[in-house]
Amino acid sequence: MAEHGLVQRLAALARLELAEGEADRLERDLGAILEHVERLRALPLRDVGATYWTAEAAQGMREDVSRSGLDVEDGLGSAAARSGRYLLVPGMREDA
Protein backbone atom coordinates (compact mmCIF):
# COMPACT_ATOMS: atom_id res chain seq x y z
CA MET A 1 0.00 0.00 0.00
CA ALA A 2 2.53 2.60 1.14
CA GLU A 3 5.13 3.04 -1.59
CA HIS A 4 8.76 2.56 -0.76
CA GLY A 5 10.60 5.62 0.49
CA LEU A 6 7.34 7.19 1.61
CA VAL A 7 8.25 6.98 5.28
CA GLN A 8 11.59 8.69 4.67
CA ARG A 9 9.88 11.48 2.78
CA LEU A 10 7.28 11.97 5.52
CA ALA A 11 9.94 11.81 8.21
CA ALA A 12 11.86 14.57 6.44
CA LEU A 13 8.73 16.74 6.29
CA ALA A 14 7.95 16.05 9.94
CA ARG A 15 11.58 16.54 11.05
CA LEU A 16 11.79 13.07 12.60
CA GLU A 17 14.97 11.06 12.77
CA LEU A 18 14.19 7.35 12.58
CA ALA A 19 16.39 4.71 14.08
CA GLU A 20 17.66 1.81 12.02
CA GLY A 21 14.85 -0.64 11.29
CA GLU A 22 12.29 1.86 12.55
CA ALA A 23 11.46 3.05 9.05
CA ASP A 24 10.62 -0.47 7.79
CA ARG A 25 8.42 -1.13 10.77
CA LEU A 26 6.61 2.21 10.35
CA GLU A 27 6.17 1.58 6.65
CA ARG A 28 4.41 -1.71 7.40
CA ASP A 29 2.19 -0.12 10.07
CA LEU A 30 1.31 2.81 7.83
CA GLY A 31 0.48 0.43 5.01
CA ALA A 32 -1.86 -1.57 7.23
CA ILE A 33 -3.64 1.52 8.51
CA LEU A 34 -4.01 3.05 5.05
CA GLU A 35 -5.40 -0.23 3.76
CA HIS A 36 -7.95 -0.21 6.54
CA VAL A 37 -9.18 3.28 5.65
CA GLU A 38 -9.58 2.33 1.98
CA ARG A 39 -13.25 1.53 2.73
CA LEU A 40 -13.80 5.12 3.78
CA ARG A 41 -12.09 6.46 0.68
CA ALA A 42 -14.46 4.41 -1.45
CA LEU A 43 -17.61 6.01 0.02
CA PRO A 44 -19.36 8.42 -2.37
CA LEU A 45 -19.33 11.59 -0.23
CA ARG A 46 -18.69 14.22 -2.89
CA ASP A 47 -21.87 16.14 -2.10
CA VAL A 48 -21.48 16.05 1.65
CA GLY A 49 -20.10 19.13 3.39
CA ALA A 50 -17.17 18.78 5.78
CA THR A 51 -17.51 19.13 9.55
CA TYR A 52 -14.23 20.58 10.75
CA TRP A 53 -15.69 21.96 13.97
CA THR A 54 -18.43 20.75 16.31
CA ALA A 55 -18.31 23.66 18.78
CA GLU A 56 -21.62 25.37 19.45
CA ALA A 57 -22.33 28.72 21.12
CA ALA A 58 -18.60 29.38 21.29
CA GLN A 59 -16.67 32.45 22.43
CA GLY A 60 -16.54 35.49 20.18
CA MET A 61 -13.47 37.45 19.23
CA ARG A 62 -11.25 39.26 21.67
CA GLU A 63 -11.29 43.01 22.18
CA ASP A 64 -8.06 44.72 21.25
CA VAL A 65 -6.70 45.33 24.73
CA SER A 66 -3.08 44.61 25.56
CA ARG A 67 -1.86 43.03 28.76
CA SER A 68 1.63 42.04 29.76
CA GLY A 69 2.33 38.33 29.56
CA LEU A 70 5.30 36.35 30.78
CA ASP A 71 8.64 37.52 32.07
CA VAL A 72 11.46 36.29 29.83
CA GLU A 73 12.60 33.87 32.56
CA ASP A 74 9.12 32.33 32.80
CA GLY A 75 8.65 32.23 29.05
CA LEU A 76 12.06 30.95 28.00
CA GLY A 77 13.33 29.53 31.29
CA SER A 78 13.09 25.97 29.96
CA ALA A 79 14.98 26.68 26.74
CA ALA A 80 18.01 24.52 25.98
CA ALA A 81 20.15 27.55 25.10
CA ARG A 82 19.88 31.29 25.51
CA SER A 83 21.94 34.32 24.64
CA GLY A 84 20.94 37.02 27.09
CA ARG A 85 17.28 37.75 26.54
CA TYR A 86 17.33 35.89 23.22
CA LEU A 87 16.55 32.26 22.45
CA LEU A 88 19.65 30.69 20.94
CA VAL A 89 19.25 28.00 18.27
CA PRO A 90 21.76 26.12 16.13
CA GLY A 91 22.92 27.78 12.94
CA MET A 92 21.52 26.91 9.55
CA ARG A 93 23.53 25.18 6.88
CA GLU A 94 23.10 28.09 4.43
CA ASP A 95 25.13 30.24 6.80
CA ALA A 96 28.16 27.98 6.66
Binding site: V65, S66, S68, L70, V72, G84, R85, Y86
Partner: peptide, 21 residues
Protein backbone atom coordinates in the same frame (compact mmCIF):
# COMPACT_ATOMS: atom_id res chain seq x y z
CA UNK B 1 -2.81 47.51 20.68
CA UNK B 2 -2.39 43.76 21.11
CA UNK B 3 -1.19 40.88 18.96
CA UNK B 4 -3.48 38.94 16.63
CA UNK B 5 -4.05 35.84 18.75
CA UNK B 6 -3.03 36.89 22.26
CA UNK B 7 -3.12 39.98 24.47
CA UNK B 8 0.62 40.73 24.36
CA UNK B 9 1.40 44.35 23.41
CA UNK B 10 1.99 44.86 19.70
CA UNK B 11 4.89 47.21 20.17
CA UNK B 12 8.11 47.64 18.22
CA UNK B 13 11.47 48.38 19.76
CA UNK B 14 11.16 46.80 23.20
CA UNK B 15 14.02 44.72 24.63
CA UNK B 16 14.06 41.18 23.14
CA UNK B 17 11.36 38.82 24.39
CA UNK B 18 9.48 41.43 26.40
CA UNK B 19 6.06 40.97 24.79
CA UNK B 20 5.64 37.21 25.13
CA UNK B 21 3.09 34.83 26.61
Amino acid sequence: ASKMFCSCPNHFGDPPNTNIC
